[in-house]
Design a protein around this nucleic acid. Structure first.
Length: 551
RNA sequence: GCGCCCGUAGCUCAGCUGGAUAGAGCGCCGGACUUCGAAUCCGUAGGUCGCAGGUUCGAAUCCUGCCGGGCGCACCA
C-alpha cells in the first residue's frame, strides 16, 4: 500500500512539473509514512519539504502544486496540507475493504514480493564447531538466520541456507585428544586430562561408546592415529547431534559445507596462489601475510604461519570465494557479536579476490544471557557447564524459543528467561499471537457446524466498525512490513507486526461478535477474520513458528 | 590505548534508515466471563529518549566530545 501511495505522489509531482507548476524535475527520495495521530491522515508524505531546496519554493507552495495533481477518484478520500508542508492523505473506506480481497487473492503468498528479483542469496549461519552441542547462543543465531532466509525468500530472493563445518584444524585434534584420553581412562589407565581439552560429560559418554564398540584396540595404536580416529568419531557424532537439534528447532539447511573439503580439493592452496599472483600477499618473519591494510583493515593478516600451516582465515577466504563461484550474488553471514573484528578482513579478502564487498553482509547477533527466574545461568563450553539448545527446546518448546529470539533486534543483547518462556500469558507473546489463529479457527468451525456459514465472496460494505477498519489497515501494512524486514534483514519487525495485528484482533473480538443474528453481517465478518487468520499464519511461518488450530 | 555495538517509562524492549503530541508488553492500581476460547479485553498512573554541544524548517534517529555498560584487538578458531 505504501508503494502505491508513493507512486501516486511521485506521479503527481511529475505531472506538476510537466505543467510548469514546479520548476525542477530533480526529485529526492520520498518517504511515505503512517502518522501516529488519526487527524494527520492515513498516510503522510514529506515530499514538499525535502524538495524545497531543489525547487527553491516554499514547502507549502510545493505541496499545493502536488496536491492539485493527485486524483481524488481512486483510493483517496481527501487531502490536506498540514504543518510545515506535510501532505496528509485520507483514504476511502473502499480502499480499506480491498484488504480482504487482497489477502484472499494472495492466499499464502499475500505479502510476498519481487523485491529480490530472483537474485541468488546464500545465508550462512550457526556454523558452530562440531566440538560440542549447540547452546542457547547458537539458537539465537539459528532463529535469526533461518527467519531471515525465509523472509528473503518470501521477498523474491532465491535463498540457500548453509552450515559451514569447521572440521579441520586444531580444535578438532583437541576434540580427538579429549575423547581418546577419556577412553584411555575408562580402559583403566591413569591419564592427566589437560585443562584445554573439552571437559563436558558428553565426551565421557562418547568414550563409553567407543569402548563398547572397539574394546581396547585403540590403545595398541600409535597415539596420533588413535587420536585421529577419535577425532573423526567425535566430530561425526557431535555433528549428527547438531543436525538433530536444529531439526527439532525447525531449522533445516540446504547445504552442510565442510571446511576440510576446501583442503582436500586444493581450494585453499589455489586461493593462496591467486593472492600471490595478484601481489596481495607478502612474506615476513617466515610467515605469509595478506595485505589487508590495502583494503581498509587495520592490520595485515597471516594466511600461512611460519610453521607452514594455514590459518583459519586462509580457508575462510577460500570459502567465501567459493560461495561466489557457486553463483551466489549476495552473501549473508550470521555471526556472534564477538566476531565483529573479523568483518574488515573478510571484506578485504572479498575485494582482493575480485568481488564486491557490497554483496557481502554480516548480521552480528548479540549474545544471549540465559536466566532462570531472573538469575543468570552460567555457561561455558570448555568447562562443560552450559544449557544446550536441546535443553531449552525440550523445556520451553521450539515455538516459544524462536519467538523470543526473534522478538528483539539482533543488535541488542537478549535476556532469555527459561521460566518466563514457559508462562502461558502475555509475558510470552508467542501464545498471544498463536491464540489468534486458534480462536479464529474455532470461530470458523462454529460458523460451519452451527450456522452452516463458510467463507464466501459476500459483500464487505457492512464492515464499518472502527475495530474492523483497524484490522483491515493492519493487514494492508503486512506487505510493507515484509519489505522492510527483507531490506534491513530484520526479522523482529515481523514479530512486532504480529503482536500488533494480534492485539487489534483481540480487541475486536472482545467488543464485537463475529456470528450475530444478522447473517449478512456475520458472513462479512467471517471473511474479515479468515483474512486475519491467513496473515497471522503467513507471518508466523516467516518466523518459523507454528500456527496451531487448537491450544 | 584503538575499534564495533548499546544507553528510550520501575523492568524488558519497539520506534519503518531525519518528521508532527516518543510507543508496546510486564509490573502497579481499578474494572469486564449465564453470550463465537478470559492464554483475552477496557481504563488510570508512569519520560529533560545517558550528558553537553553541533548540523536544519524539524533530531530518540545524523556529526563531535564526554559518562556508563557489553564485546573485540593472535603466526587461536
Amino acid at each position: 500500500m505504501k508503494q502505491t501511495i508513493k507512486a501516486l505522489i511521485e506521479n503527481a509531482a511529475l505531472a506538476a512539473y510537466e505543467k510548469g507548476a514546479l520548476p525542477s524535475d530533480t526529485f529526492p527520495p520520498v518517504t511515505v509514512e503512517e502518522p501516529k495521530v488519526e487527524s494527520q491522515g492515513d498516510y503522510a508524505t514529506n515530499i514538499a519539504m525535502v524538495m524545497a531546496k531543489a525547487q527553491k519554493m516554499a514547502p507549502r507552495k510545493i505541496a499545493e502544486a502536488i496536491v492539485a495533481e493527485i486524483p481524488v477518484e481512486g483510493l483517496v478520500e481527501r487531502l490536506e496540507i498540514a504543518g510545515p508542508g506535510f501532505i496528509n492523505l485520507f483514504l476511502k473506506k473502499s480502499t480499506w475493504l480491498t484488504a480482504i480481497s487482497r489477502v484472499e487473492a494472495g492466499g499464502e503468498a499475500y505479502g510476498a514480493s519481487q523485491l529480490g528479483a530472483g537474485k541468488k542469496v546464500q545465508v550462512e549461519f550457526v556454523s558452530a564447531n562440531p566440538t560440542g552441542p549447540l547452546h542457547v547462543g547458537h539458537g539465537r543465531g539459528a532463529a535469526v538466520g533461518d527467519s531471515t532466509a525465509r523472509i528473503l525468500n518470501f521477498a523474491g530472493f532465491e535463498v540457500d541456507k548453509e552450515y559451514y563445518i569447521n572440521d579441520s584444524g586444531r580444535q578438532i585434534r583437541t576434540l580427538g585428544l579429549s575423547l581418546f584420553l577419556r577412553y584411555k581412562a575408562l580402559c583403566g589407565q591413569t591419564v592427566e586430562f589437560p585443562g584445554d581439552c573439552y571437559q563436558g560429560d558428553y565426551i565421557i559418554e562418547m568414550a563409553r561408546e567407543v569402548q563398547a564398540d572397539k574394546g581396547e584396540s585403540l590403545l595398541a595404536m600409535e597415539q596420533d592415529e588413535a587420536v585421529q580416529i577419535c577425532a573423526r568419531i567425535a566430530a561425526d557424532e557431535i555433528l549428527s547431534g547438531i543436525k538433530n537439534d536444529l531439526e527439532a528447532f525447525g531449522v533445516p539447511f540446504d547445504n552442510w559445507f565442510s571446511e576440510q573439503s576446501l583442503y582436500d580439493e586444493g581450494r585453499v592452496m589455489e586461493t593462496i596462489d591467486e593472492l600471490k599472483a595478484k601481489g596481495t600477499v607478502f612474506e615476513k618473519e617466515g610467515a605469509l601475510w595478506f595485505k589487508a591494510t590495502d583494503y581498509d583493515d587495520e592490520k595485515d593478516r597471516v594466511v600461512v604461519r611460519s610453521n607452514g600451516q594455514t590459518t583459519y582465515f586462509a580457508s575462510d577466504i577460500a570459502y567465501h570465494m567459493n560461495k561466489f563461484e557457486r553463483g551466489y550474488q549476495r552473501l549473508i553471514d550470521v555471526w556472534g557479536a564477538d566476531h565483529h573484528g573479523y568483518i574488515p578482513r573478510i571484506n578485504a579478502s572479498i575485494e582482493a579476490t575480485g568481488h564486491n564487498p557490497e554483496d557481502f553482509d554480516v548480521i552480528l547477533v548479540q549474545l544471549v544471557n540465559l536466566l532462570r527466574g531472573g538469575e543468570p545461568v552460567a555457561m561455558s563450553t570448555r568447562s562443560g557447564e552450559f544449557v544446550t539448545l536441546k535443553d531449552v527446546v525440550d523445556e520451553v518448546g521450539a515455538d516459544a524459543a524462536r519467538f523470543i529470539f526473534l522478538s528483539r533486534h539482533y543488535d541488542s543483547p537478549l535476556d532469555f528467561d527459561l521460566d518466563l518462556a514457559k508462562k502461558k500469558s502475555n509475558d510470552n507473546p508467542v501464545f498471544y499471537v498463536q491464540y489468534v489463529h486458534a480462536r479464529i479457527t474455532s470461530i470458523l468451525e462454529k460458523a460451519k457446524t452451527e450456522r452452516n456459514l463458510t467463507v464466501s465472496a459476500v459483500p464487505t460494505e457492512l464492515l464499518s466498525e472502527p475495530e474492523e477498519i483497524t484490522l483491515m489497515k493492519a493487514m494492508l501494512r503486512f506487505p510493507d512490513v515484509v519489505d522492510t524486514a527483507a531490506r534491513l534483514l530484520e526479522p523482529h519487525r515481523i514479530s512486532y507486526y504480529l503482536m500488533d495485528l494480534a492485539s487489534a484482533f483481540h480487541s475486536y473480538y472482545n467488543k464485537h461478535k463475529v456470528l450475530t443474528e444478522d447473517t449478512h453481517l456475520s458472513a462479512a465478518r467471517l471473511r474479515l477474520v479468515a483474512s486475519v487468520r491467513q496473515v497471522i499464519k503467513t507471518g508466523l511461518a516467516l518466523l518459523g513458528v507454528s500456527a496451531p488450530e487448537k491450544m
